[in-house]
Design a protein around this nucleic acid. Structure first.
Length: 267
DNA sequence: ATGGTCGCGAGGCGA
């Protein structure tokens, strides 16, 4: 079984790319982030034609997550229990469309779009950390209730856990940028401490292995990227992983997302 | 040429 995660940066703008990619790669499950649409604008027929069931959670032109599967799509959940809300300036806090879960052929998959944080001193940063902390608590409970559970926490984590996960850590430090701060990294490590493992890094160690390249500053041709998209697997699921890849080719050309798909093969 | 981005949705925000 092949499972994948991909921040598509608008599903409507990427419809042809996603269609081609599904047919080319033949994945069984695709977790999508940043659909950037409501249900009424979601390209349902794209997935139907390609032979996938799909569940979507989108509230506005922001965020939006989905799971497409051709091996079953059961027990769909939108938001995780206790998911923190956010409202800029403290007004109208809402649980944003950043998490959707479904069971596909016995694997509990969560498509996650972790809050960006925006800046170290921005109100979005404590939101990001609280969001991760609460998800970690929930994910810990899922394993405590069933140590043999097959769970995949996949998506855009908006964290670069190691210095080699960005093209120039000194630049990030000098500019005081997000994604590499100790609190963010600690939040990521908490998932590993809870028993979830990055199943891609061992097969594709850095430096220079990235999943995201900013559209600006010619970051992609200059190979200046970030590794911020991850597949974290519970112990029972990690034991099944036989291969993994980052589809850097998909970042090429006109009309590409700024993220590459990450694919994991299960035996 | 010393610059150089997208997407949404219709101005500016978010990434």
């Amino acid at each position: 079984m092949l499972i994948a995660t991909w921040n598509v940066n608008s599903l409507r703008a990427r419809a042809d790319r996603v269609d081609d990619w599904l047919r080319r790669t033949d994945v069984d499950v695709l977790a999508i982030q940043e659909t950037k649409c409501k249900d009424e604008n979601f390209p349902w027929e794209l997935f139907e034609r390609a032979g996938y069931e799909v569940a979507h959670f989108g509230l506005s032109q922001w965020n939006g997550v989905a799971i497409a599967s051709r091996v079953g799509l059961d027990d769909v959940e939108r938001t995780f229990a206790g998911q923190p809300s956010f409202g800029k300036g403290g007004k109208d806090p809402v649980q944003e469309a950043r998490a959707i879960g479904a069971t596909c052929d016995g694997v509990r998959i969560w498509s996650l779009y972790v809050p960006n944080g925006r800046a170290l001193d921005d109100e979005h940063m404590p939101y990001k950390l609280a969001w991760l902390d609460e998800l970690k608590d929930q994910a810990t409970g899922w394993l405590a209730g069933d140590p043999q559970a097959q769970i995949a926490l996949v998506g855009d984590w908006n964290i670069a856990p190691q210095d080699d996960d960005v093209w120039d850590i000194d630049y990030f430090r000098a500019e005081g940028l997000t994604h590499v701060s100790e609190p963010e990294r600690a939040a990521f490590r908490a998932f590993e401490a809870a028993g979830y493992a990055d199943v891609v890094r061992p097969r594709h160690p850095g430096p220079g292995v990235y999943t995201y390249w900013d559209y600006t500053q010619l970051r992609f041709p200059k190979k200046e990227g970030m590794r911020i998209d991850f597949v974290l697997a519970s112990p029972a699921l990690a034991a099944r992983v036989t291969d993994a890849s980052i589809d850097r080719e998909e970042r090429k050309g006109k009309g590409a997302s700024d993220h590459a798909p990450v694919v994991v093969e299960l035996g």
